[in-house]
Every structure is written in C-alpha cells, then in structure tokens.
C-alpha cells in the first residue's frame, strides 16, 4: 500500500518500513503510514492484527525493530530526555484509562504541564479546569479516579492528554473497556476534537465513529496494512477479500 497524504498538509506522522517482532512473532510487517496534520485516521482490524502495537510504537511505548518513525519531521529518539520531550507532544489515550490513582482528577491533568512544560501551578489549574469543562466533568475535578465512572475516567484521561497541547493524539481502543452506555459520551468528545482539527490516530472497533469522524480508514490484518481509504469507500466497497470478510463479521448485527 503506497503511503498517501490528504491535501497539501504537511505530514505530522510518518512511518517508513516499520517492522516489529515479539520474540519469533513478526507482529508488524513493512508498515508505511503517513498522517497529515489535522487528519483523523482510524485503524481497524481483527484482534492480533498489530494495530495496538503500531499505535504504541508511535510514541515508543514499544521499541521499533526496523524502520523509521517521524513525528512532525523529527525522527523518534531512542531514549532519554529527547524521547520524553517527544512523548510530551504525542498524546496517548489508553484502553484502561491509566489515570494516576493517588491523585485527584485535577492533579492528574496538571502533572504533565507543571513538571514537563514547567507551567506555573495556578495557570495549569486554570487550563485543566477549562479542559474538564470541555469534556463535561468539571464537577469531578477534586474526585479521585476510582470515584468516577468508566466514561468519566476516559474523558478525564483525554483531558490529561490534551493538557500537554499535543501535536497528535493516539487512541488505543479508548472505548473497549467501557460499558455500552458510556461509549457515546467518550466518542462525542473525540468527534468534537476531530472537528476542531486535532491530528488523531484512533485504534477502535467503533465503526460508527470511523464513519462520522475519520478522514481515512486503515485496515490491518496479520501485521500489515491491507487497505486504506476514505470511510465511505471502505465500508461500502472494500477492495480486499480480508476487509470484506472482516466487515461482514462485525457489521451483521
């Protein structure tokens, strides 16, 4: 699959020839992917297809076997402070939220801005409150994560990622651990982020979100990007047998 960019936008994320092994297991095979600034890419595929691993490679929570990853034109540093600085620019939202259990929601959000960005505490708190307002849980600022519902926790986690003013946001199955009635409150926040022009890479099984918010759907299977295209085209007329098979299994109900 040839890498593609939409419009004249500069590439924000650029992956070239990415290969990754877990021991003998070849989990990512020759991945090429370019995501333009402001683009929303949804990555779908059966479990074990490598989509989460790809997502985690992009901020180097997983090491890269072979190939290169560039974020906003900068190659991903291997480790140390340079990597920490880059991660500050790449937000990540996890399946299991991973809010810091010993801190209030507000302190979860201000930790990065105060410690990494060196923003003064009052200012960081103000920004955090504005973000909590935006994701609709300002009244939970002084609660601890365990006192929140799953949907509220995930919205707090999105606010925590946004507080770093990232260049790109990665979502690793952000709604998979949620009760069904809480999925939409999280997706609504994500849709509004997409509408505001945030560059997003979203690994998800929510095909509704892909239809509503994605500029492009990337379909992965067995460690490869098998197909990539506009959501309308992908869902209406998938070009590959694997994608047709996958869609027939998940869209029946």
């Amino acid at each position: 699959m040839a890498p593609e960019t939409t419009g004249a936008n500069r590439p924000m994320v650029s992956v070239r020839g990415l290969n990754k092994w877990f021991g003998p297991l070849h989990v990512l095979k020759d991945i090429d992917l370019t995501v333009a600034a402001g683009e929303v890419v949804v990555v779908v595929g059966p479990s074990g297809s490598g989509k989460s691993t790809l997502c985690r490679c992009l901020n180097r929570l997983e090491t890269v076997g072979q190939g290169s990853i560039e974020i906003d034109g900068e190659p991903l540093p291997a480790e140390g402070r340079a990597l920490a600085r880059l991660r500050a620019d790449v937000g990540m939202v996890f399946q299991s939220f991973n809010l810091f259990g010993h801190k209030t929601v507000l302190d979860n959000i201000t930790l990065g801005p105060t410690r990494v960005r060196r923003i003064a505490r009052p200012e960081a708190r103000q920004q955090a409150m504005a973000l909590l307002e935006r994701v609709g849980i300002a009244d939970k600022a002084d609660h601890h994560p365990a006192q929140l519902s799953g949907g509220q926790q995930q919205r707090a986690a999105i606010a925590r990622a946004l507080a770093m003013q990232p260049k790109v946001l990665l979502f690793d199955e952000p709604t998979s651990a949620l009760d069904p009635e809480m999925v939409n409150e999280v997706l609504d926040v994500m849709v509004s982020l997409a509408a505001e022009g945030m560059t997003m890479i979203v690994v998800t099984h929510e095909m509704g979100f892909a239809r509503r918010a994605a500029d492009r759907v990337v379909f992965m299977d067995d460690g490869r990007i098998v197909e990539s295209g506009a959501p309308d085209d992908f869902f209406a007329a998938p070009r590959t047998e694997r994608a047709r098979d996958f869609l027939s299994k998940i869209l029946q109900h």
């Binding site: 402070r81 620019d89 990540m92 410690r115 990494v116 770093m164």
Partner: peptide
Amino acid sequence: VGQAEAARAIGLTFGQSLRHV
C-alpha cells in the same frame, strides 16, 4: 504497568515517573 506507561506518555522522565507516579 499502565501507570508507568501513562506517566511516560505525558513526557515524564524515568525519575519523574518514579517520584510522582
């Protein structure tokens, strides 16, 4: 392990993750 990953993901260094998270 998710706590350490979340700490790294917001750009904390190893030392900062240890100390604050």
